[in-house]
Design a protein around this nucleic acid. Structure first.
Length: 262
DNA sequence: TCAGTTGTTTATAT
DNA sequence: AATATAAACAACTG
C-alpha cells in the first residue's frame, strides 16, 4: 500500500532495525529487484558499513551509511521488516540485509519499484533529481505556488511526483473528498479559497495517516472507498467510480461537483 | 477465466 | 512545452 504515510512508517521501521548497526552480509534472493547494481556488488559495497538515520523523500526511502546509500522504492506492494533473526523470512523478501544485530528485509510481492545503490549523498541527489518537494514538509505558500504554475486536472497534479512527492491514489482521493473538490476540476478554475481548503485537507489526511498508522488509513473515507455500494460517509450519497489521471477514482457526486454538470 | 490492484515509465496523442 | 491516455511491468486475489 505504499504512499507517503506507508513509506514514513517503513522509514521508522528501518531506523529501528538498522540505524547504528553494521552490515555483515547482504542476501539477494531475487536479483530482479535490483535496478542499478548486481547482487555481489551490493554486498561488497555495503558490507562493513554502518547505517545512519534513514531519510524519506516522497515515496522514496533513503538509507545512508558511513559510505554508500541505498534507495528503495516500494511500488504497490513493498514493505520493510526488521527482525532479530532469520525466523519468519518470506518468499517475497527480495533483499535481506544481515546486521551485527538482527536483519532488515525488503519485501515486495509484485516487484514494481526496486532497490538502487548510490555511492554517497551526491549520487543520491542525482538519482532523485526529478523528484519534487516532499508533500509532508510543504508549507501553504509553496503549495499555492506549485498550483499557480500548473494547469489541468487537480488529481493529476497531486499524483505528479515531480511536482510534489508522496501523494498516491488513495491519499489524493481522500484529500479531495475532504475538501469537497471534484478530482477532475481544472486547477485554473479553483478559487483561492478552494486551494487553501485543499491544502488543509491534504495536511489533515497526511497527519491522520502518518501519526495514527496504520489505523490512520482506516478513516471514514477509506473504509468505504472501493466497497460495492459505497456511500459518502457525510451525506450517504452512493459514491461514483470513474477514472481520472489513469487511476481508479471515487468521489461523492453530491458534494464534489464539476462545473457544467448538474 | 478475467478484471482489478495503493506506482512508475514509456510511447503516443492532443 | 505541457498535459492526457493507454499500455506495460509483475504477481496475486476474488
Amino acid at each position: 500500500m505504499p504512499e507517503l504515510p506507508d513509506v514514513e512508517h517503513f522509514r521508522r521501521a528501518f531506523a529501528e532495525a538498522a540505524a547504528g548497526h553494521r552490515v555483515e552480509r547482504v542476501v539477494v534472493t531475487d536479483p530482479g529487484i535490483l535496478r542499478n547494481v548486481h547482487a555481489d556488488e551490493l554486498d561488497r559495497a555495503l558490507r562493513g558499513h554502518r547505517f545512519e538515520e534513514p531519510d524519506r523523500l516522497g515515496k522514496w526511502l533513503i538509507a545512508g551509511t558511513d559510505g554508500p546509500a541505498i534507495l528503495v522504492h516500494f511500488g504497490m506492494t513493498g514493505d520493510i521488516i526488521g527482525a532479530p533473526d532469520p525466523t519468519g523470512r518470506h518468499p517475497h523478501d527480495r533483499v535481506i540485509i544481515e546486521l551485527d544485530r538482527g536483519e532488515v528485509r525488503y519485501r515486495n510481492m509484485r516487484k514494481l519499484g526496486g532497490l538502487w545503490l548510490a555511492s554517497g549523498p551526491e549520487e543520491v541527489g542525482e538519482l532523485l533529481a526529478g523528484v519534487g518537494p516532499d508533500a509532508l514538509s510543504l508549507d501553504r505558500r509553496r503549495f499555492l505556488e506549485l498550483l499557480d504554475r500548473r494547469r489541468g486536472r487537480i488529481k493529476a497534479a497531486l499524483l505528479d511526483q515531480s511536482l510534489l512527492a508522496g501523494i498516491g491514489n488513495l491519499l489524493a482521493d481522500e484529500a479531495l473528498w475532504r475538501a469537497k473538490i471534484h478530482p477532475a476540476r481544472r486547477i485554473e478554475d479553483l478559487s483561492l479559497e478552494e486551494r487553501r481548503t485543499l491544502y488543509r485537507a491534504l495536511r489533515a489526511t497526511m497527519r491522520d495517516t502518518v501519526e495514527r498508522y496504520p489505523e490512520g488509513f482506516e478513516t471514514r473515507w477509506t473504509r468505504v472507498r472501493g466497497r460495492p455500494a459505497a456511500r459518502c460517509p457525510r451525506c450517504r450519497t452512493p459514491l461514483t467510480r470513474t477514472v481520472v489521471a489513469g487511476r481508479t477514482t471515487y468521489f461523492c457526486p453530491a458534494e464534489q461537483l464539476l462545473p457544467g454538470s448538474p
